[in-house]
C-alpha cells in the first residue's frame, strides 16, 4: 500500500482546519494512518472512504480513563489512529455511518473549555519559569514568548467558544 508522509504545522487554535485538511485528503484518496509532531502519514484508500476526526482528550490516552474513552469510540465502529500529546485522532469508514465526535453545542463548548484550560496551565508555567529565568537574559524571554503565544491561542479559541455560546442561547 502506498504511503506518504507530510510535514505540516497547525497552530493549536487551528484544529478545525487541521481536521478539514484530513478530510480533504481522504476525499482525494489519502487517509490519515499515523501522527507525529507536525508530521502526518497517509495511506492510499478509496476516495471518500473515510471520515477523520480529532479531539483533545480529557485524560492522556495512556491513562485508564483515556483508554476507556478510546474503547468507547472504537465500539461505535471508529478506529483510533494515534495521538500527539492529549490530541487523539480517529477515523471511520463512511459506509459504517456518519462520524462525529460531538453532536451538540454543549459538548463542543466543553471541548473548547478543555483546550483553553490545558493551554492556560502551560502558559502560566511558562510565564513563571520565564520570570525565574530572567536573570539569565535570553533564556527567560523564550519562556515568556511561549506564554504570550499560548495566551494568544487561548484568546483565539475563546472567540470560537463565545460564538457557539451565543448560538446556544437560541437553540437549547
Amino acid at each position: 500500500m502506498k504511503r506518504r508522509t507530510i510535514r505540516k504545522w497547525f497552530w493549536v487554535w487551528e484544529f478545525d482546519q487541521e481536521e478539514k485538511w484530513f478530510n480533504d485528503m481522504a476525499k482525494r484518496g489519502w487517509v490519515l494512518d499515523s501522527v507525529g509532531f507536525a508530521k502526518y502519514t497517509f495511506v492510499q484508500s478509496e476516495p471518500g472512504e473515510y471520515t477523520v476526526r480529532l479531539e483533545m482528550l480529557a485524560h492522556t490516552p495512556a491513562s485508564a480513563e483515556g483508554q476507556d474513552y478510546i474503547d468507547f469510540i472504537e465500539e461505535t465502529g471508529a478506529e483510533y489512529i494515534g495521538n500527539v500529546m492529549q490530541w487523539a485522532y480517529f477515523r471511520k469508514k463512511r459506509e459504517a455511518g456518519e462520524f462525529d465526535l460531538f453532536s451538540d453545542t454543549d459538548s463542543r463548548i466543553r471541548h473548547m473549555e478543555r483546550i483553553i484550560k490545558t493551554l492556560e496551565i502551560i502558559a502560566l508555567s511558562n510565564l513563571l519559569i520565564g520570570m525565574a529565568n530572567m536573570r539569565f537574559a535570553g533564556l527567560g524571554l523564550i519562556n515568556i514568548a511561549c506564554a504570550a503565544l499560548l495566551g494568544y491561542a487561548c484568546m483565539k479559541i475563546r472567540q470560537k467558544k463565545d460564538a457557539l455560546t451565543k448560538e446556544r442561547a437560541l437553540h437549547e
Binding site: 468507547f72 465500539e75 465502529g77 471508529a78 462525529d100 465526535l101 460531538f102 454543549d106 459538548s107 471541548h111
Partner: peptide, 28 residues
C-alpha cells in the same frame, strides 16, 4: 444497552433526526 445501541435506537426512535455522536454520548 451499550453505547452503540443507544446511538442506533435514538436514530430509529427519532426517525433519523437525532444523531448522538460518540464523544457527546460518552460525556452524557
Amino acid at each position: 444497552l451499550h453505547g452503540y445501541g443507544i446511538m442506533q435506537l435514538t436514530e430509529q426512535l427519532s426517525a433519523g433526526r437525532v444523531r448522538l455522536a460518540a464523544g457527546t454520548l460518552y460525556g452524557a
